[in-house]
């Protein structure tokens, strides 16, 4: 899985993220509600943790047996791209069938 570009990591670092799941984007003024796994993933992405390790982290923190965490994470990063929060990477979402 490709990692985020440095500009995307900087952009994610600029977000104001609360423990309650409230995310504010200072550049656009949009705010978002995030669930617990999204908060965990965002925190790791801000620290430039590689995707494979984020998936492991999610498995460690949440009851995620038999779940395609890698696929979900790729989808999440794609969604961040749609919200303009990371630079969209055409190759980034191709890991959809992974996890086997």
């Amino acid at each position: 899985m490709s990692e985020l570009a440095p500009a995307s990591v900087r952009r994610l670092r600029s977000l104001a993220i609360s423990d309650a799941g409230f995310v504010f984007d200072p550049r656009t003024g949009h705010s978002y509600s995030a669930n617990a796994t999204a908060l965990c993933a965002l925190d790791a992405l801000k620290r430039d943790v590689p995707s494979s390790e984020i998936a492991a982290l999610l498995r460690e923190r949440f009851a995620a047996d038999d779940v395609e965490v890698e696929h979900d994470l790729a989808e999440f990063i794609r969604a961040l791209g749609e919200h303009g929060l990371v630079q969209s990477d055409p190759g980034g979402g191709s890991n959809g069938s992974g996890g086997n």
Binding site: S33, A38, V67, D72
Partner: peptide, 15 residues
Amino acid sequence: MSKPRYERPSLVRNV
């Protein structure tokens, strides 16, 4: 303590 249930990571814009 048991782990919390996993959900797909999700970010929803507030409108």
